[in-house]
Design a protein around this nucleic acid. Structure first.
Ligand code: SF4
Ligand code: SF4
Lengths: 154, 154
DNA sequence: TAATCTACGACTAAATCAATCGTATTTCAT
DNA sequence: ATGAAATACGATTGATTTAGTCGTAGATTA
């Protein structure tokens, strides 16, 4: 789950938009400056986010981008999957992009990778922009332990 | 923490060597066949593992590779770091390869990535080949919760 | 002494990443 | 009206990484 620059940039900008939520559009120029993102690169990122319905745009003077969904209804998991494609450390433990491996039956360490993927996926899928913005705890590990033993094992 | 093929291949082979520990060398040809790894590619991987002191080799007939350390003294974390370089999802939360980001002071989501890196790093650094081979539980989440609150926070 | 191994550097093809550029189009303040 | 300011979007690129292959040299032993 190595984060690409694109994902990092997208998240930076999203949180800027969350902070400014309800107070009108911000132009790319400003988003790029405040988050230290190359402006021309950011254009593509914003286009992709618009296509996903996370942001909306208005052209012309006074134009720019606004958040199009409630911050509580966008998760970091969605953002990472959008830009990096896959969240799991390897195809054989991915849910969204599962790839069969013919060693699965005899593989000794797949369960460890699955554990990692489960923790990270749960964390990211629970991390809504709203909660993360507020600094709220996203996942208590006790809750995770309980759910885990309830079974999504190997 | 996307696993490269190289790392995956290395782990497959290591567990084969663990299984065969103490019963003489296995030639690359056999390691490659049993684990479905391209043989010529595996040569480089074995060289690197030999340099790290994880395996030892003997040439000639009856030659091949053996494990050079106790399975309890090699962790998956070491293997991943060796071949993928870094375990953390992004430079700003890496311990072994920290990269400063000038947004750190204002970044809203770094703490989430740090949480992910902490869980995965602990998991992998505890996952010795011996324990993983035996199927033993590597990290109870309760223990993790306790340690976490003891503080390696943001 | 020949068969069977490892050792190791050189090379490559393809994919991915991180952008940059040119240009078209829309909007609105004046 | 008009022009400044904004988004829209495809084309292109340069660097890096990935996932290998190939040729050959050298060691070991049945
Ligand atoms: S070897 Fe194990 S971990 Fe690697 S891809 Fe196959 S099943 Fe998954
Ligand atoms: S923006 Fe936040 S998460 Fe991304 S690199 Fe900077 S500090 Fe780390």
């Amino acid at each position: 789950m190595r984060l690409s620059k694109k994902t990092d940039y997208a998240l930076r900008v999203l949180f800027t938009l969350v902070e400014h939520h309800g107070r009108g559009p911000i132009p790319i120029r400003e988003l790029a400056r405040r988050n230290d993102v190359p402006k021309r690169f950011l254009e593509h990122i914003m286009l992709e986010m618009k296509a996903r319905g996370w942001v909306d745009s208005s052209p012309g003077k006074q134009g720019g981008y606004v958040l199009a969904k409630e911050p509580a209804r966008i998760t970091m998991g969605e953002v990472i999957r959008q830009f990096d494609g896959v969240l799991a450390p390897i195809g054989c433990v991915s849910v969204a992009h599962y790839e069969r491996c013919n060693q699965e039956a005899v593989c000794r360490f797949r369960r460890i990778l699955l554990d990692a993927r489960n923790y990270v996926a749960r964390l990211m899928d629970r991390a809504t922009l709203a909660m993360v913005f507020l600094g709220a705890p996203v996942q208590t590990r006790e809750v995770f332990a309980q759910e885990f033993s309830a079974g999504d094992g190997i």
